[in-house]
Design a protein around this nucleic acid. Sequence first.
RNA 1: GCCGAGGUGGCGAAAUUGGCAACCGCAGCUGACUCAAGAUCAGCCGUCCGCAAGGGCUUGAGGGUUCGACUCCCUCUCUCGGCACCA
Length: 806
Amino acid sequence: MKYNPNKIERKWQRYWENKKLYQTKDKVKGKKNFYHLVMFPYTSGDLHMGHWYNYAPSDVYARFKRMQGLNVMAPIGFDAFGLPAENAAIQRNINPADWTRQNISYMTKQLKSMGAIFDWSRKVETIDPEYYKWTQWIFLKFYEKGLAYRAKTKVNWCPKDKTVLANEQVVDNCCERCGTQVVQKELVQWMFKITKYADQLIDDLEKLDWPEITKTAQKNWIGRSQGAVIKFQVENSKNYVDVFTTRPDTIFGATFMVLAPEHELVKKITKDQFLGQVNNYLENAKKKTELERLAEVKEKTGVFTGAYAFNPATKEKIPIWISDFVLPHYGTGAIMAVPAHDERDFEFAKKFNLSIREVIGGGDILKEAYEGEGKLINSGKFSGMDSEKAKWEITEFVGGKKMISYRLHDWIISRQRYWGAPIPMVYCQKCDWQPVSEKDLPVLLPKIRDYKPPGTGEPPLVKAKDWLNVKCPRCFGQARRETDTMDAFVDSAWYFLRYSDPKNKKQFASKDKLESWLPVDMYIGGQEHATKHLLYARFITKVLNDSGYLSFDEPFKTMRHQGLILGLDGNKMSKSRGNIVDPDEMVKKFGSDSVRMYLCFMGPYENGGPWDPKAIVGVFRFLNRVWNLIKPKFQNPNDKSIPNSKIQNKELDKVFNKAIKKVGEDIENLRFNTAVSELMKLLNEIEDFINKGFTFQVSSFKVFLKLLAPFAPHLAEELWHQIGNKKSIHLEKWPEYNPKLIEDETVDLVIQVNGRTRDVIKAPHDLTEPQARELALASEKIKKYVSGKEIKKFIYIPNKIANIVI
RNA sequence: GCCGAGGUGGCGAAAUUGGCAACCGCAGCUGACUCAAGAUCAGCCGUCCGCAAGGGCUUGAGGGUUCGACUCCCUCUCUCGGCACCA
């Protein structure tokens, strides 16, 4: 019989499902719980190789953990609300609900073909009212704590999708999804106050076992910088301009000031004769999109207000300018300009012919700004002091205060779109905004035929007339529902909590179950979520923890990223490039076991790389050889009468013990590629021994199958049953190795002459140096190089190497 | 521009973390089986000289530390990711 993966794989998938083999109980006596999490897929259509790469090797890890005796939960679900699904539905002229449902059922089928240990009984879908009820509940908790608020913001507006985009969803100033140029628009929106947690989000990174690169990305994203606020008094006015600076030590060099066009003082301080040009400038600035602003990075623009302020250090009068290179939402929206020591200020000064004063030695300020540290000059009593040291002394001297600024903005969660969880708020003329009461959750997303954005900028939900009108929860008068829906990133920021108790009708999850599973022990997913999903999930966890609903403040203890699977041409797989590899096709051709194993084998897990359609035959051949092991060469396990003319070789036992160790350690460290390589080596050895006429015993074959089981669960199960086992191999324990059997009786002692290997000698363990020297010099090969010459040095590292220096 | 990761055969890669560079596999070549192809099996396979034995060279480039460097340090270079007028 030939190895036919399609036949056996479906058979065992059904068997596992019927036996409920992968359904996880919340508590199992004598077993520790292990929460193994993969990022749930977005329902964008079908499963691609990237999903497989996320889920298949991580399934090897989860299965290994399970075999080690842990009670492993490996849940799966679907992230299904959001813009991409809605846009795809619009394109196909169907309802997003139908489109998404269709995708879920197809993707489910695909996922099941993988043969992973997903516990489908815990499945979670963000579009399920029983799920988004709790997304809305979380919103209400945020609202209660003052962490959800409305604010008028200049927002990124995608003219094509007719929606607001979070900063995170703008890439190169284009809409992340459709690539359209983003424009600016003013809107009142619901926000989450993530900035309140900025410090914790940075500081707590330290306790996490996460890739350093992701921690750094989050740190940069939050962008914390320590500086000072300093007041500059406006001439002939009661007004002060507060500036934020990280370099108060350069204040003696502040020769002008710049306000952001949006700054509130602009109108108050501008002198009449300058009003015309200032208004002109503001008008232009308003119209400008971020893109245009960015294009002008090299070409500064600005306008003089006619007003002056006093530099609190020098008491000099300095002009106040307006420019859009100063950002309204960072720091105080105003700066003191020190052209000698800030590149941007330098450019601005050059362009408008403003004075430049050097206050730190060490640079050539005729050519460029010097931004480094150094000794202060031209700085009154501080001259001669190190700039580093002068920072806070000068701050105090000018009456400033220390202040920390963040790059991070609050999280705009409003979406003027249909396909999302409705925001559970009601607007009443009398009572203003009121939260929907908890008992009225979920606020169901109404079914409307025309869900497309009306194009007026209003959300589609304004068209759901019956749904729209409600009683005010406070005065019971006529009120109107909020028509914005929530950013899908809110849905996905807490799904891992729900897995612990997915069917709970009274709570998002019971405290008991949360406690038995969370925080997540291992989280595996793509690095592209470093600053979005992962930051939001941490934020929501922290808020729920502070509110007493959780007893941990970080959701994911350990996290790892899989790399990116590329097309054969080395580019990201995409339809337009035509380099897509369809996993279904591969499964059909080679079987899931081969696809799983090839993904493990192709390279280091964090690296990813191009999918080589030819290279997969390597593991396919390997699995075929495993399949063929059993037939002619293998003795009948039930026939005890077969005489063992040649018993299994001791050497093979050693090889086995080494493999058990190596494969186990490799999986533990997510080095799947070398684990597979080790299994291949093991098979090569087994075949060699068989060819030499040794009997390969059932007991060894069982061990081999157990090592194979996490990688090729179907084939391992099939052969396991073929040799007479009645229960699933996936209930077996990971084999143990005997450390004593791993050690070789002899070591390969490398003998070098002047650092070049000239001989390798089989030597007993732990030779003394004189013994090693004697042995080395006895070698004919070594004699050739050494004889007649003086040995200057003899370096000996026991059991490894001897180097003769002549 | 700043931060981070990386550069090893024709290709994916390995190297007990300073100790035999290229394990395992893909592709390729040779042979066996076959009318033939495929599948399978056996052998070769970094590169140069050599029939061979053997030897030289080789981990992006250059330098350094060391008995010994893919591994550590410095300079340069290229590729890929993240941030980017953040004061």
